[in-house]
């Protein structure tokens, strides 16, 4: 198999994830898109690990999974908090950063 078929698949998933993060209004959907990005990264890590016959790729993929779990936990907590404060998880309404 070609290395590139994995890498390109991962690139497609990554870009779809980026699209989701940028275009979605709903906080939950944005978090899901982030998961897409993280999974794309994981495919990359494992593919390079296999390519170099190095176990490091798998190890870091595992770390990414752990970090992703933490990220979802925190992300959901933030979305819940936002929902509690504003009765909405529409990200376009969260514009306090406006300078």
């Amino acid at each position: 198999m070609l290395l590139n078929q994995f890498l390109l698949l991962s690139a497609v998933l990554f870009c779809l994830g980026v699209y989701g993060v940028l275009a979605r209004k709903n906080g939950m959907l944005v978090l899901m898109s982030v998961e897409l990005i993280l999974n794309a990264v994981n495919i990359n890590l494992v593919a390079f690990g296999a390519f170099r016959t190095d176990v490091g790729g798998s190890v870091f993929a595992l770390f990414t999974i752990a970090v992703a779990a933490a990220e979802v936990g925190i992300g959901l907590a933030i979305v819940l908090l936002m929902y509690r404060n504003r009765r909405s998880i529409d990200l376009t309404q969260a514009d306090l950063l406006k300078g």
Binding site: V18, V21, L22, A23, V30, L91, T92, A94, D95, L96, L97, K98, G99
Partner: peptide, 14 residues
Amino acid sequence: INTGRVQNYAAIMF
């Protein structure tokens, strides 16, 4: 530019 919307900033960053 300063819409305050994180996603716009993210778009610029990406």
